[in-house]
Amino acid sequence: MFRATYERVLAYALRRTGAAEAEDVVAETYATAWRRYDVIPSDPLPWLYGVARRTLANSRRSGRRRTQLTSRLASEYDRPSMTESDPSERLQDALLMRTALNSLTESEREVLMLIAWEGLDNAHASAALGVTPQTFAVRLHRARRKLEDEISRITESAASDDASKEDR
């Protein structure tokens, strides 16, 4: 179980925090798994994601780590401009998607990332969050809608900036 899941749990943590913190999160996650291995379900990955998510949340609450996705994305992609010419359309779209994602709440981001980045289906993602599949489906629907709204807002804002520059 440990060897089969290690890299996926590490990748989960790396998508949400810095490299040094991610290693700590993984170590704490498996320490918890070690203590509670009698309750680990037969498909352990969603359960491990749930433990990793709580470990990250606890460390943020205690103020020991501030490197959450918000600050990470902000430093890496500091306000991408949709008007700059970019050699790669895909990269530009990735920046747009991450900026839009960054504007959602942590809970909304997590729902979307479990599906799009961790590749879980609704049943496994709901298990990772510890909610019913029904609740998860509703949250996913709302998060998707908000992400679409944010993409539209950013795109319209960039277009408006573009028009202002041309007027000047």
């Binding site: 890299e7 779209d93 998607m97 980045w117």
Partner: peptide
């Protein structure tokens, strides 16, 4: 589109540590 924005894409994950 969101999957394309994954900072640690699945291709970087090999399945075993």
């Amino acid at each position: 589109r969101l999957a394309e924005a994954n900072p640690v894409p699945p291709s970087d994950v090999h399945g075993e540590g």
